[in-house]
Design a protein around this nucleic acid. Sequence first.
RNA 1: GGCACUAUCGUCUAAUGGUCAGGACGGGUGACUUUCAAUCACCUAAUUGGAGUUCGAUUCUCCAUAGUGCUACCA
Length: 493
Amino acid sequence: MVNNPVRVRMAPSPTGRFHLGSARTALYNYLLAGKTGGQFILRIEDTDQKRYVPGAEEEIIQSLNWLGIPPDEGPLQGGHFGPYRQTERREIYGKYAWELVEKGAAFPCFCTPERLEKVRQEQLARKENPRYDGTCRGLDLTEASGRVSAGEKYVIRFKMPKEGSTTAVDLLRGPITIDNTALDDSVLIKSDGLPTYHMAAMIDDHLMEISHVIRGSEWLSTFPLHVNIIRAFGWEEPVWVHLSVFLKPDGKGKMSKREKAEAIKDGHSIFIGDLKNLGYTPEGVLNWIVLMGWGVAEDDVMTLDQMLERFSIDNLTPSPAAINFQKLDHFNGTHIRLLTTEDLAARIKPYLTGAGLEVPHETLLKVTPLIRERLVTLDDSIAFASFFFKATVEPNPEDLIAKGLDAQQSALIARKSYGILSSLPEISHQVAEPPMREYVEKSGLNANQIFGIVRVAVTGQKVSPPLFESMEIIGREKVLERLSNAAGLLEKL
RNA sequence: GGCACUAUCGUCUAAUGGUCAGGACGGGUGACUUUCAAUCACCUAAUUGGAGUUCGAUUCUCCAUAGUGCUACCA
């Protein structure tokens, strides 16, 4: 159990889109911080200028905001431990690297990438495990410093012990031991002067007083290296938590580029930035991802507040999880049904207006309860409610023909319904339903047939919210007009 | 290839050295019903395999198998 206030961080690199995995890492960090009254920090790891993607940082921040789990400290909100972008901290790292060199825990290396690549190929050809061959490892420090001052290109490598092994503890998996020879003399500072992840993250975590490192399991095999770096400095280790990875829906491997594209065509996406446009709610998405890697015994529908109450960092599961979009749909629909009418109406509105509809607020407030339990995503409202806001509808004439009847019989029913409805003082649910039901009974037909014709005539679609409530909102004038148009269409068939 | 991690219904998971192995999604059936939903009830389905420890293992140990990750001057 973790009770003391923690300082945790989410440290993405702006090299691509913000996806499910990052969002879950952020969520767990946020929950642990919230749970213990600690701080959640966002740090941008932009030390790889080659892979930098403009706009990626904005997408990270927007996604976090949209999900409702913004950081307490970060490039936007600042904080006492800034700056929170690693390129803005570049002068910090070299100093620490040289401190390691002086301690004999690291060394400058002048090997060219070309030579290293050649060595690697040779090692591979000999079926050896590729590793740094140690050329500069034993270099005299004064000689090396001289070459550095002379302007020769160099990197700084960690001097990994040649013997023994390193054991480090992961909160979910216990002690993990790796032979030091497997860790290699990793580069700490690149020839462009910027640190690699291994160096930058350890220094920043120390400087920012991070107490718990919650990150993806891709770091599991390098984490004894990280522990070695920390020990070389003589710093205190954080608690390590390595999260499982997400697999594609069939559970076989991670999602490929093509599969990601296909998911979007299907109305799904693993990118948080897409989810809003696809009609998903932050509540639904959060509930979905929080349960991929964490389990509760029962009542798995939760708001963020309820997650905060129940979350426990040491109950996470270390095994990989397959993405299940059906579950996203389920949670999204469930949370939509939990929303108040006002809230739901406000959330639906942009989708409706985005579809080119004019949406008076009072009408929307009446429509919302009718479509609420039919929505899986917010943009489903377009399919379910457009006809309320259109001047006219264009039903497919074929759809107007009731099951077991022909066009002329159907036209007669439309005319008869028109007669009944037009004789009423108003077309409200209460006033209109009894005479129509009476008509159904006397006609010898079933409600399905008659109401089906009226439904298609009035809404323009075969599937709609309840008929009489819908007609009440549409209004007498439009209902009669649409009914008469439909009868006309049928008569022409 | 080497190293590491992981392994409960199709999927996400709960639990335990002795349970009818629980919940959720999905699927199925029924109720409700003017369509579609929603809702309710019921059903379906799991401890990867093999050794060992133990009176007893799904749970602990080992091996195998499979999946995943790492094996860069990427993170």
